[in-house]
Design a protein around this nucleic acid. Structure first.
Lengths: 359, 359
DNA sequence: TTATTGTGTGAGACCGGTCTCTTTGATAAT
DNA sequence: ATTATCAAAGAGACCGGTCTCACACAATAA
């Protein structure tokens, strides 16, 4: 049943209408699934549509309806398993509600993030989920809101932007993790994050424009100080943006007389690189160095020893934020919600007391 | 400078035209960046556009132009790092050429794949990149082609579909990996894949509808037979579709008198789970069991011992297929190309001779 | 019988851009 | 002075759907 390939122009409602001997309006009613049409005519139109191999032009459809059925998602880095998993949570929730997802990567660059948001608004997505890379410049996020499209924030809150937000208790969980390290006897505890700041050196929280990381560092420092550690901020390291950078940071951290005896890594990608450096330097975990990382990435359980992790509910994070957004898309009006999901620590084998040598 | 929020309707070309006291056509020329306009009027229109905060409606734009600037990508599983990396290759190439990417997940289900393709065609993407989950039912892929949009295949070839395709030499590289195992003295070598078939038991290649996997199994069996191993197909295991399933497969493989002494895993997700099972059963690598996996996933280098891997050029795979597609989108007409990228094996520490006990 | 209600269909405007065709007015050529 | 040429701007059709409104005709109520 090979009809000649309709190369050039695609089949439209009008084509189907003509073939079925009805008006364009009637054919549209059948094909669009709205309005009332008699069964007989419906059958005719369907038959014609099938014969012509009609496919609706979603573009035209969403131009008139104003709805596209698409949720735009802008994340920092799709390759980071944290985000892959969160995106699956979003996708699953979206699919369940009949929405589709367009994914854009910001690379944690504010300019790329702005471009992505602009693009998605241009494509008339119904709503957006963003992992804001910065809390300073949020004009583009305000614009989303202004354009009437709902926005929801994933993993990072923005105090100045009152929209649906789903995060974890970063400060609290960082405190718990730090306490584990401090209780084990560590005094030289380092915090390593990909977030960078001017000068690349940590001075104070005011430099950190990524809410989750600021919270974590705050919690980290609080517990360190409680434990009587002096100037714990010496060990906060920024700018682990690439494997090479991370290696540099880790190398510095693990050498010298004041070397760190414990490291808290802000994400699993960083932790993996640190793990490699530790190995290369011939250090043992946990005898020579203790390690805890945010995110229970798959590899953390197969190393020797397995790595103690902060197990964020990543999938649920994505699913919840999508559900919040979808409820709003379906017409729910309520004041913005700020969900904070519970987080656990999985203690495995990468934490021990500091080696005697350094005490 | 807070104008009242234009909640309801967005600013259109006509609005800008009115504000700038020019015709819609002229405003469109300026805003769309085509045709000729005098500098004075151009400035006026730009000013008006800025004042009104005009944003073009990409939907309307691509409806008339027929071009959307979007490449649709359908992959098997975004969470699999293999695909994440390939997608980054695609995204980078797309961005460099001024295209954007819509990502859809098929979950390796033919139905989901069809739905995704249908959706993307409906959204009038300019071209598609697909990782076909099956070689049996490719009517939806034929449809893409028929609709005049170019299609390119990633990682899996389809003999019956003559379109741009980028793969690796799966058969050859599987042969090399298998030979490493056979040369080490192994006779009970298993091949584990996520691909499933009716009956879940491997009988012959005709059951396998995923080209890359069929190639690999073919290469695997060929080398096994060359090495004088009898009925090597006994050790081909299908259906490792989830961690739980994989665990079941691995458990069976590693118990009994005829247990496998070497395993070739078809992807890193499977390999990770197999690694876990090996550990749990108290077996040692490589003393008790040798392991090689496809894809140099990040975790494979941090385990003890590190895992010998088949290092597919994943990023290049994505980048190349995108470039092929983009060249075609830019008007290049040539007969379809089938690129086969070179692949290496990284020998690490997970291969050794079989233990004496089983000889 | 006439008015009322309701169902199914058709005609045509509309969404927000692009693009072709026409018109205008200024400059150059005759 | 008259005509040819051309750049710049305007008018309006068009893309492929949705949706409002008008209308025909049948069934029911007065």
């Amino acid at each position: 049943m090979k009809t000649t390939a309709p190369k050039t122009r695609s089949i439209t409602v009008s084509d189907v209408a003509r073939a079925a001997n009805v008006s364009k309006a009637t054919a549209a009613r059948v094909l669009g699934g709205y309005g009332v049409v008699s069964d007989m005519i419906r059958a005719d139109v369907m038959a014609a549509a099938k014969a012509l191999d009609y496919r609706p032009n979603e573009l035209a459809r969403s131009m008139t309806t104003g709805r596209s059925g698409i949720i735009g998602v802008v994340v920092g880095d799709i390759e980071n398993p944290f985000f892959s998993l969160a995106v699956r949570g979003i996708s699953d929730a979206a699919k369940a509600a009949g929405f589709n997802v367009i994914l854009a990567n910001s690379g944690e660059k504010i300019e790329a993030e702005k471009a992505a948001v602009k693009l998605l608004i241009g494509k008339r997505v119904d709503g957006l989920i963003v992992t804001p890379s910065e809390s300073r410049d949020i004009s583009h996020l305000r614009d989303i809101h202004r354009s009437g499209r709902p926005l929801a924030l994933l993993d990072r809150a923005l105090p100045d932007l009152d929209v649906d937000t789903v995060t974890v208790d970063d400060r609290g969980i960082a405190m718990r993790a730090t306490r584990i390290l401090a209780d084990a006897g560590h005094r030289n505890i380092a915090y390593v994050t990909a977030v960078d700041a001017e000068g690349h050196e940590y001075r104070d929280l005011g430099q950190i424009y990524t809410s989750s990381v600021r919270e974590r560092i705050d919690g980290f420092l609080t517990v360190c100080r409680d434990a009587g550690i002096e100037r714990p901020e010496r060990y906060v390291r920024l700018g682990a943006t690439s494997p090479a950078e991370t290696r540099g940071v880790a190398d510095k951290l693990l050498s010298g007389p004041d070397r760190a005896t414990a490291i808290l890594a802000s994400d699993s990608v960083i932790a993996l690189e640190i793990f490699r450096v530790i190995r290369q330097r011939g250090l043992r975990i946990p005898e020579d160095i203790s390690l805890i990382t945010f995110h229970d990435a798959d590899w953390t359980s197969v190393t020797t020893p397995p790595v103690t992790v902060i197990d964020q509910p990543v999938y649920a994070l994505g699913k919840s934020v999508a559900e919040l957004l979808i409820r709003r898309l379906k017409g729910e009006t309520r004041s913005p919600e700020r969900l904070i999901l519970p987080t656990a620590i999985i203690e495995r084998g990468s934490v021990g007391p500091p080696s005697n040598r350094e005490r």
